[in-house]
Simulated scan of single mutants.
Amino acid sequence: MALNDIDLGHLERCVELAREALDDGDEPFGSLLVDATGVVRFEDRNRVKDGDQTRHPEFAIARWSAEQLTPDERGVATVYTSGEHCPMCAAAHAWVGLGRIVYAVSSAQLTTWRTDWGLPAGPVQSLAISQIAPGLPVDGPAPQLQASMRQLHHRHAIGSRAAGSEH
């Protein structure tokens, strides 16, 4: 399914959340949960800077939706995110029965950028959502947002290198 103006608007908010995360010293990722009527029900950004590497916004959405939404509501909701879900978040998304995922940049794009910048690989293999949860409807990337996301991740990479961090 092609991305429409509504999708792009939600993805732009995800990029804003990613920028907020980076400005707060975190990795640049942000996500929204939008219900079937188009209402944003939950939004969050990465919060891993204090050492808990599971504090991804997509994982927070899965937890929140499991507590706050019925299975039917989860199934017709859409998760918008600045970056394609990691394997942990893709599995959580599938386990709680969330619907469509729309992302701005793919895991493959991010992996290529990190490699180009001389950063080490992460501790978990980068896989496409479809490899983790093949039944999920997934759309992305959004070429219109690639430059913005690349700039945010590059800024994070430079900061990580300066700090001697591996993340």
Rank of each mutant, 00 (worst) to 15 (best):
D139G: 05
R114V: 02
I61Q: 10
Y103L: 02
P71A: 08
A62V: 03
E73R: 01
V102P: 05
Q146P: 00
V102T: 11
D116L: 12
V105R: 00
S126V: 12
A62T: 04
P137I: 11
A94L: 13
H93Q: 05
V138R: 03
Y103H: 07
A94H: 08
M88K: 11
Q109D: 15
W95C: 09
W117E: 07
L136P: 11
G118C: 05
G118D: 09
L136W: 12
T112Y: 12
W95A: 15
L69Q: 04
I129A: 06
M149E: 00
G97C: 06
S106M: 03
L110R: 14
P141H: 00
G122H: 02
G118N: 07
V138C: 03
I132G: 12
A66Q: 10
R63H: 04
Q68V: 07
P143R: 02
S148E: 02
H93Y: 03
C89N: 07
G97R: 02
S106P: 03
A94G: 10
L127E: 09
A60H: 13
A133N: 09
A133P: 09
A133I: 14
V124P: 00
Q125F: 04
V76H: 04
M88Y: 10
H85E: 11
A62L: 05
G83E: 03
G122C: 01
W117V: 06
P87G: 11
E84I: 01
R100F: 09
V124H: 01
P120R: 15
V79D: 08
M149Q: 00
D72N: 04
L110C: 10
D116F: 03
A94T: 09
V124W: 01
R63G: 04
P143W: 03
Q144D: 08
G83F: 00
I61S: 14
A147C: 05
V105I: 14
T78I: 11
L127D: 04
L145T: 00
G122S: 01
I61V: 13
G83V: 02
S65N: 12
H85F: 15
M149Y: 00
M88N: 08
L145Y: 01
L119S: 12
V138K: 01
M149D: 00
E84W: 05
A90N: 13
M88C: 06
L98E: 10
C86P: 10
E67Q: 15
H93C: 04
A121F: 07
A104V: 02
S126C: 06
G97S: 05
A94I: 06
P134A: 15
